[in-house]
């Protein structure tokens, strides 16, 4: 696709200012500025801090992405931007940037759904998506199971969390165990020295016949377990607690993902989002996919966490599909439904 248009993608739905540049499904730049360090002491992302950081970071991050790709602004053929879901004030900075670039360059704008972009990004690494595929998206902000007949046109929600996102549960359990924010990588690391079978933590909604998730009860169960041991004056083996908690999360995630594949007779599963970097999730998903005859696709970690390349990838699909561009009046929609792939 040497003559496919150059698409610049902008992602600001949470704490990462991400700029990606693609031509077709070829990744040319994926530059990220994160404000995570500023949020860490608050134990979670502070929306106003994130919004301020996006405004500070946008221009330098775009410049860095253009430099990395060896391009000038005027080379860009289309702009794609996360229009939602996400933090309202954070999204607004990205959408304002995208509109100003589209207006200034005289190129089309594509406002896209953040979750669909998490699916589309895998094409930059593993080529075109099988149609259909099932996608499991897990991060600090989302836990969703999707049926994806066509990522540019048609994405169907099969299930999502009824309370906490999976990544949120990691953060909260990390706090209980005295591990730093964000909790995911720290729990993953601690769990390597522990046994996932040490403590039988509950699996929320495991066999309830839905494809929804629940992690709030698990989080509370871990806190109760730790508090009971502390009250009894017993020491806590953090690696065992971390491993057993992690096992409960990934057991439910992978089990439901494969239930979805079976129910819809789909043979390709894609896992994305920050939690897709979890080593136990990758291992158990691979094991269960192999057993079920399902092909597993997981983008490399830099494409799993929020980034601009995913937005550019979906934008590129929209251009290729001949989708009508967005107007320069589109709002940022913090609760954009997944059924709306583009606005």
């Amino acid at each position: 696709m040497a003559d496919a248009p150059l698409v610049l993608g902008i992602e600001t739905s949470c704490d990462e200012t991400g700029i990606g540049i693609v031509r077709g499904h070829t990744l040319l730049a994926n530059t990220i500025a994160s404000s995570m360090d500023e949020h860490a002491r608050f134990g979670g992302v502070v929306p106003e801090v994130a919004s301020r950081a996006h405004l500070e970071a946008m221009t330098p991050t775009v410049d860095a992405a253009l430099t990395a790709a060896g391009l000038k602004f005027s080379d860009i053929d289309a702009i794609a931007v996360t229009a939602g879901p996400g933090l309202a004030g954070a999204l607004l900075v990205g959408v304002a940037a995208a509109k100003s670039y589209a207006l200034g360059l005289g190129v089309p704008l594509y406002g896209v759904n953040h979750l669909a972009a998490h699916v589309a990004v895998d094409q930059l690494e593993h080529g075109p998506l099988p149609k259909p595929c099932v996608a499991l998206l897990v991060s600090g902000g989302h836990s969703s199971l999707l049926l994806v007949p066509d990522v540019a046109e048609d994405v169907i929600s099969l299930g999502s969390t009824v309370d906490d996102a999976a990544g949120e549960a990691f953060d909260k359990v990390a706090r209980v165990l005295g591990l730093p924010f964000p909790g995911g990588p720290h729990i993953d690391r601690a769990a390597r020295d522990g046994s996932g079978a040490a403590i039988a933590f509950p699996r929320g909604k495991i066999d309830d016949g839905t494809l929804d998730f629940s992690f709030s009860g698990l989080k509370t169960a871990v806190a109760r377990w730790v508090e009971a041991r502390e009250a009894a004056g017993e020491s806590i083996h953090v690696p065992d607690v971390a491993a057993s908690f992690q096992e409960a999360v990934v057991d439910v995630l992978t089990r439901k993902a494969l239930q979805a594949c079976k129910k819809y007779d789909v043979h390709d599963l894609l896992i994305g989002g920050g939690v897709a970097a979890n080593s136990r999730l990758r291992a158990l998903a691979q094991e269960r996919c192999d057993a079920a005859g399902v092909r597993l696709r997981v983008p490399r970690p830099g494409l799993c966490t929020d980034n601009g390349a995913m937005v550019a990838a979906l934008g590129s699909d929209l251009v290729a599909a001949g989708v009508r561009p967005s107007t320069l009046q589109i709002p940022a929609d913090s609760s954009l439904p997944i059924t709306t792939v583009h606005v």
């Binding site: 919004s51 301020r52 405004l55 946008m58 221009t59 775009v62 602004f73 309202a88 940037a97 200034g104």
Partner: peptide
């Protein structure tokens, strides 16, 4: 108020950069 304020400043930076 910051949410609105940032829209104008981001737009100014973006237009200046592209033009």
């Amino acid at each position: 108020p910051y949410t609105g304020l940032r829209v104008g400043l981001m737009t100014a930076q973006g237009l200046a950069g592209t033009l």
